[in-house]
Design a binder for these strands. Structure first.
Lengths: 89, 89, 89, 89
DNA sequence: CACTGGAAAATGCCGC
DNA sequence: GCGGCATTTTCCAGTG
């Protein structure tokens, strides 16, 4: 009766503790990351650009180019839309 | 003609303008909100605490539900796999 | 005695309600914005790029160029660092 | 020499590599966390509810404090401008 | 005037 | 493949 619940309860507790443990470790690393950024900032680096560099390195080059050209397409589409009839210039 | 490049320039413009319009309105309201806080501050209220009160009021309804069903939640978690009162399957 | 508290209480309530009212309106507009993006997506536009276009339009050109060139500086600094002794090439 | 352009390339590289290293470790832990959830799911637990339980446990201590001092908070808000028991100033 | 903390936005992920 | 959720990132106001 209370048997299967007890067992599940123990299991549940174990799961929760494991997850909380891992989350704790993640938090430590996240803090470490922040510190590195802060240190970099202290050395005169621009944190925002730094993040962008890291983001770029994560992305594969093909994908990057594709996004860049799509952006160009959009920008040109905006400029080339209706204003001043340069439609097919 | 420029063909595949000229992708719906007019449509794109329309979308962008609509979004920018909405963002403009949001900005106005955000400013109004700030003004209310400032006015409150001028009347001797502590803005930080005011924000906290509002935050709590937002969370409270949700919180109440969660609190009320905490035990249920645990019980469900323990045998969440049997959805529909399959007691002991 | 309870006098000044009462008055302040009314005032407090009024402030809170005004803010909550404004926040409600902001939420509606935010939802509207989301819908526009979703509609655009339904028409084949890339939401992420769309967001970038809008972000770019908000930023003044000078600032934009500055960021872009700083990014270049960083990227070149990475490539030109130690590897393969091209230090002063 | 390239002068002002060659801005601390080595330093920059070191920073980036450190960050990427830490992010790698975070990713491993994140994956571990996911695995725990998956394992739990395999044992009949409802992942969504599990997440909720963990979230509540995180919020609970803070929540308790906030709840306990709600009245205080309101009272402070009402005369927050007099910090240090200036009774009726 | 840079730092800190908190609100708002954006991105990525997971399940359906 | 899409919509919703959770995390992460960015922005901004207050503060020393």
């Amino acid at each position: 009766m209370s048997g299967s619940i007890e067992i599940a309860g123990d299991q549940l507790r174990a799961i929760i503790e494991r997850i909380e443990q891992v989350e704790e470790e993640i938090k430590e690393l996240t803090d470490a990351k922040k510190e590195i950024y802060m240190e970099a900032k202290g050395n005169g680096f621009d944190v925002k650009i730094l993040r962008e560099v890291i983001r770029m390195r994560k992305q594969d080059p093909a994908e990057r180019d594709e996004q860049a050209s799509l952006l160009d397409v959009y920008l040109q589409a905006i400029n080339g839309a209706s204003p001043a009839g340069k439609k097919a210039a």
